[in-house]
Design a protein around this nucleic acid. Structure first.
Lengths: 244, 244
DNA sequence: CGACTAGTTGAGCCGATTCAACCCCAGTGG
DNA sequence: CCACTGGGGTTGAATCGGCTCAACTAGTCG
């Protein structure tokens, strides 16, 4: 078991992407945090059909949320970055409707879901924040659904790369030498509803067109304006987001 | 302006699909309810880009949530049935990321979003319920994304029809003579990421195969088992859901 | 040195798209 | 009373974007 990062000194709270909380709130989060777990890249954080009664905040690393059909076809719903909250949907039913898998080494803060009601009761502002996080995640899924339903392969890829870049940049993952993208082409294909082969060809084509570079996993948006035009991307104004 | 249905005597609370609230909670909802509005079929409840600061519960009728690309391609994210709650995402940003349109004549309860924080503060259980509703809606969008990303046209249609039927049945809209489906084929196409023509052909094919009938807008699932098999449908256990 | 993972590329095919008619029916207005 | 119009649905034909199949490379690990 890995060491326990104290919420007071949560490294995420330093990077400006997250809204501030009162001392009392952070203390509450701290004592609600049961433990901290670490997964290797590829590790199964939640399996489809599980019914672990826990909630998680991704503290570091990348992960993704997905679901499969019984013959193996897989759809990735969204990618999770540090600060993202997982596990709410699973409280609704008996079993986990979807799986969550680590893309890189990842650490998560674990909150027992029995304490969730306590949170709403004693710290309504945190309850409000959880709703915010939930609605925000839905926004991202909506965006993906729009891509998969109505954008062409090239448009989808442009959209995904811009969107991931912006999100990652926001939490301090992008530097002057670009962003380390821990996705395989299979992940991209599964997120965009495309086949692996076609994903590969489209990625190459956009790269050849000078829209971006992706070398050894490092993504740089060479021509973000052209990509945004292609994807019909509309940037939402960024605001500080809650962190639990 | 239409007459105001008192929350105490909310017709939705009679049909067993919704979880009970305390008198105090219902009183709170009542006084938070600013007014009630009615739309004709096709009416724009929210336009894309609007920033109306209000929340809505669909009291009667059908509606849908969608977003368009700038060249007009439209994706429907989900269909709204009585008891569904809309407007949360719009609190997150400055403007409405998606539109909501009435499919039938529809009435909605209107809640000013400035009161939302009050709700969390004074009635944490209702805050909890709103989170539940939000997470539940995300579950539905996830399901749609899985369809659009990974199911064939026939599978998508089977999935949509089963899913809508179950949801509508749950709130008492389906009777012995089936369910009145107020969707045009264009709506189905836009929800499933298909073209109108292909939607038409696939609908006919499944109907000819004896899976369902759809006459004058009335849907009957003739062979639900075969449809479920085709769609790889897995029914989640139904539980009482909150109603705000 | 296999064995395995990730990526790349060509060839052929097919599901879904676009284009183009056409039907039916309910308004609506001369 | 009927012609006109527009929305929704239906159908065939041709096309194409993305799929499957298949083969091959490079890197990594035991």
């Amino acid at each position: 078991m890995s060491s326990h990062t104290p919420c007071r000194r949560c490294p995420l709270r330093d990077n400006g992407a997250f809204s501030a909380n009162t001392e009392a709130e952070i203390d509450f989060i701290q004592q609600m945090k049961k433990r901290q777990i670490k997964f290797d890249a590829g590790g199964a954080i939640l399996r489809e059909g599980d019914d672990r009664k826990e909630l998680y905040t991704l503290l570091s690393g990348w992960a993704f949320r997905y679901r499969s059909l019984s013959d193996g076809r897989r759809q990735i719903f969204n990618f999770l970055l540090p600060g993202d909250f997982v596990g709410l949907q699973h409280q609704l039913g008996q079993s986990h409707p979807h799986g969550v898998e680590a893309l890189t080494e990842a650490t998560l803060c674990v909150f027992p879901s029995e304490r969730l009601w306590d949170l709403y009761r004693t710290h309504p502002a945190l309850g409000f924040d959880i709703t915010w996080l939930s609605a925000n995640e839905e926004l991202i899924v909506d965006e993906n659904l729009l891509s998969v339903g109505r954008r062409s392969a090239a448009e989808r890829i442009a959209m995904l790369l811009i969107h991931l870049y912006k999100r990652a940049e926001r939490v301090g993952l992008a530097g002057p030498d670009g962003l380390h993208l821990p996705l395989t082409q299979q992940h991209i294909a599964d997120a965009l509803g495309l086949s692996l082969v076609h994903t590969n060809k489209t990625l190459k084509r956009l790269q050849a067109a000078g829209l971006y570079t992706l070398n050894e996993g490092r993504l740089k948006l060479v021509n973000p304006a052209a990509m945004a035009r292609l994807a019909d991307y509309y940037a939402l104004p960024l605001r500080a987001r809650p962190l639990i």
